[in-house]
């Protein structure tokens, strides 16, 4: 019998705030039952939700201001987060201008890779028999500056060992794709002009487009 009472006591989930309260000493009860030595657990007052609480997402006349307040609060948080992010993207950068004049074609020797602008502009100018092209000297793997190894006729990146042919095509090491080429044109006064901001990417078939290669005889 006592077991049964204990079992009842062990089922507090069945108790809802509207359920009858635990038996009290004064209530009539069948003969032979004992009052449970374990007091039946009741939810503490502060653990019960307030009666008839519709929750804030149930819109009605009473909480429209509350909902508007919360919307405004989160709206402010989101807007200021976006603003803070935007703050980290300045409008003006103090970096090297991407466009520069590289000199006259006669300054370059046929078959040579010029490292003249590597330090300042990070560009190699390659003079072939049929013309010029400009390779951007940033390894496509992780952005180190490769070295031109004339004796091996290749570019080799010191960071992770990527190797590129003089055309810029990758053939060894971890680089995922060829070096990029920059726009190369003649100015009106016959100088070579390079614009690093316009890139020609091999996998997209850009290298056959005008500007990736500057035909020049002489």
């Amino acid at each position: 019998m006592a077991d049964q009472v204990a079992k009842e006591a062990a089922a507090p989930q069945a108790l809802t705030p509207t359920a009858p309260a635990a038996p009290t000493a004064g209530a009539p009860r069948p003969s032979g039952t004992q009052i449970s030595p374990v007091p039946l657990p009741r939810k503490a007052k502060q653990d019960r939700p307030p009666e008839e609480d519709p929750g804030i997402w149930r819109m009605n006349r009473r909480n429209v201001l509350s909902v508007a307040g919360w919307l405004g609060f989160f709206g402010f948080i989101v807007t200021s987060t976006i603003g803070a992010l935007r703050f980290m993207f300045p409008r003006v950068l103090f970096e090297q201008p991407p466009k520069f004049k590289a000199g006259f074609p006669s300054d370059f020797v046929v078959g040579e890779v010029s490292e003249k602008f590597k330090e300042e502009k990070r560009v190699w100018i390659v003079r072939e028999k049929g013309g010029f092209y400009a390779l951007i000297s940033i390894c496509t793997h992780l952005g180190c500056t490769p070295r031109w190894l004339g004796s091996d006729n290749k570019f080799k990146c010191p960071c992770h060992g990527s190797g590129f042919y003089r055309t810029g095509i990758n053939f060894e090491g971890p680089a995922p794709r060829p070096l990029e080429r920059a726009l190369i044109t003649f100015t009106d006064d016959g100088q070579i002009e390079i614009d690093r901001s316009i890139k020609f990417i091999y996998e997209k078939g850009d290298w056959t487009k005008p500007g990736a290669f500057l035909p020049f005889q002489g």
Binding site: E120, R122, L142, R147, C159, H160, P174
Partner: peptide, 30 residues
């Protein structure tokens, strides 16, 4: 910026990840 030391290495605690770069593309390893 024009002179990359050879070899150039990340801080030592990232060298495990840098080693992974030998085997995987940067978007995986990095």
């Amino acid at each position: 910026r024009a002179l990359t030391p050879n070899p150039s290495k990340a801080p030592w605690y990232f060298l495990g990840l840098q080693e992974m770069l030998v085997y995987f593309d940067p978007w995986i390893a990095g």
